[in-house]
Design a protein around this nucleic acid. Structure first.
Ligand SMILES: [Zn+2]
Ligand SMILES: [Zn+2]
Ligand SMILES: [Zn+2]
Ligand SMILES: [Zn+2]
Lengths: 132, 132
DNA sequence: TATACACCTTGTAGTCGCTACAAGGTCAAG
DNA sequence: CTTGACCTTGTAGCGACTACAAGGTGTATA
């Protein structure tokens, strides 16, 4: 299977696949006579794993760790779950941060009385910085 | 006021201030005899505005627009509010995305039974991709 | 006066996870 | 024999900084 086909199957661009290879998360496949990359189902599985983890917001660094752990199928899965739980914690923090932002933006917008910039409380809130 | 003092006052690094100047959102201040940047309270206000908008998640591009609008104090504030409302929409979308992520991560973690990697449902969920 | 030290200057390169070229090689169909 | 789709490598760009390196300036102290 050539890179384009794999890319279509996984829903990524060919360049992304080459990037994963450069980064060392996806093994270099054998080459055809024409020097084209020649992927098998194992590569496809690996790529799926990577994409899924990326879609869940794991960083490349974390994915490298996940892959290393996942490769030893007899190991206790505790370390894997710890990584996932740490990531969940990060997601929770991001959500909390964004919710704080949202509250402030809403407060700003509620106070606007459709006047001029000189009296706009949105501008004022930005300028003064009431520090949520 | 020199760059270090302004940086401390605004809670940013001096390099960030120079970056804002390069990017054209903060005016170039006059220089002292020693060629040091010499900031006044107007610069401090401007920098505060920028930082506050950044902390609220506005992009530099949006901030450039906000600053341009804010500079004409007699203009109707409608455009300002429209920008802020658009940003609120983006924040809402980000929160929704992260909440979907969180649900999936939680589901994965709930199913783990502390066995080996070979039977770990966290790994399996990553590998198979049940597409939330 | 020497010198140590904190601060400033410019310019360049690194971060992350791709994405977009450019310039060229390979292969099958028309 | 050429067109067109695909592949190759290498390099540069995105956003918003951050981290140097190499050197200039200003002040306090020995
Ligand atoms: Zn308004
Ligand atoms: Zn307003
Ligand atoms: Zn486990
Ligand atoms: Zn498990």
């Amino acid at each position: 299977m050539r890179i384009g086909e794999l890319a279509r199957a996984a829903g990524v661009k060919a360049e992304t696949i080459r990037y994963y290879e450069r980064e060392g998360v996806l093994a270099s496949p054998p080459r055809t006579q024409a020097n084209y990359r020649d992927y098998g189902p194992e590569h496809a599985r690996r790529l799926n794993f990577i994409r899924r983890a990326r879609d869940l917001g794991f960083s490349m660094t974390r994915i490298r760790e996940l892959l290393e752990l996942a490769d030893d199928r007899s190991r206790a899965c505790h370390a894997v779950d710890t990584l996932a739980r740490a990531h969940l914690g990060e997601v929770n923090r991001k959500i909390a941060d964004l919710e704080a932002l949202r509250r402030e933006l809403r407060r700003m917008l509620e106070n606007c009385e459709q006047g001029t910039v000189g009296t706009c409380l949105v501008i004022e809130a930005l300028a003064e910085g009431t520090e949520a």
